[in-house]
Design a binder for these strands. Structure first.
Lengths: 160, 160
DNA sequence: GCAAGATGATTCAAATTCAGACCATTTAGA
DNA sequence: TCTAAATGGTCTGAATTTGAATCATCTTGC
């Protein structure tokens, strides 16, 4: 047990050593892992991580397409940022936009065959990086617990 | 290496459900927590997260100052990005640059009193967000394990 | 049926980030 | 000592991101 705490952990209190360590590790790991991911995707397919995420979400969507705003929510980017990214992906021929019949405000973003192919090209390397940087460094128990804990963290924040 | 492999987790193989879950949670939690952090710092002190990190590192450095490149390494930011950020912070009066006597290539970035004050202003809110979004959502055991596991992940990547 | 407000998406200018070129030291080696 | 390579920082132009404003289309309540 660490030093005995005599008062309640009120919001705003300094973090305790263990908490601070977890926070700093969380930050650093996030930074570093993302940096590796970004590097690999750029090198193997000229994609940014966000663009990759867009393609991934589209691939697993029904009919390989999603409305812009749903896509933005999935990938967790702002609408204006998504507009830009999809424009880039469209320019590359990986995504195609089309109007939505039932709601003429919305726009479908649909994965093209070229987009699917691009995804296939980078995916093996992507998986390798995910393994090498994160998964293979953790024990099965840690993977389990990390999944539980961070899912809870994410779920909390989504419901805001 | 045999080419006969059918189920071994060779690099490049699809992630298993548990692994995928951990990976997605890691990504999502990182995104969402950082978003909250960014929001609070911007609102309470007009600082970006990276700028805040710069001030934090400087505060705990001897004489409240660091050389630009050491600072960049600490904050895990590219040199050119740090140059920009420090220029902004200097403009705001939170940091002061000065030449280094022993190595005339280097530049000291030093935290000013105004910078320290700015830090004091945003810190309580910052801690609150760290608690609310991450720490308070985890059990002590999870905090412990998260710290261990992600420190290992980060350490691995630093040594590249 | 219709005005007020919500929603979906894009646009614009300003701010930030990136990668690489560049300049001035410093360091190492022959 | 001289020179080539390494290091520390900045600068530049292009790319990206941000946040607010805008536009068009739904939705709601009356």
């Amino acid at each position: 047990m660490p030093t005995r705490i005599t008062h309640v952990n009120d919001a705003g209190d300094a973090l305790e050593p263990h908490e601070l360590r977890a926070w700093m590790a969380f930050l650093a790991a996030g930074h570093l892992v993302d940096h590796e991911i970004e590097r690999q995707l750029k090198r193997d397919g000229g994609l940014s991580h966000a663009e990759f995420e867009v393609l991934v979400k589209l691939r697993s969507a029904p009919e390989r397409r999603l409305r812009m705003s749903d896509l933005a929510r999935e990938v967790m980017v702002s609408k204006s940022r998504l507009t830009y990214q999809v424009t880039q992906l469209e320019r590359a021929g990986f995504v195609k936009r089309s109007g939505c019949a039932t709601d003429r405000r919305s726009v479908w973003a649909e994965l093209t065959d070229d987009g699917a192919a691009a995804l296939d090209r980078v995916r093996p390397g992507h998986r390798r990086v995910v393994r090498e940087t994160l998964i293979d460094v953790l024990t099965p128990a840690e993977i389990e617990l990390l999944g539980d804990a961070l899912s809870r963290v994410a779920d909390r924040l989504r419901g805001r």
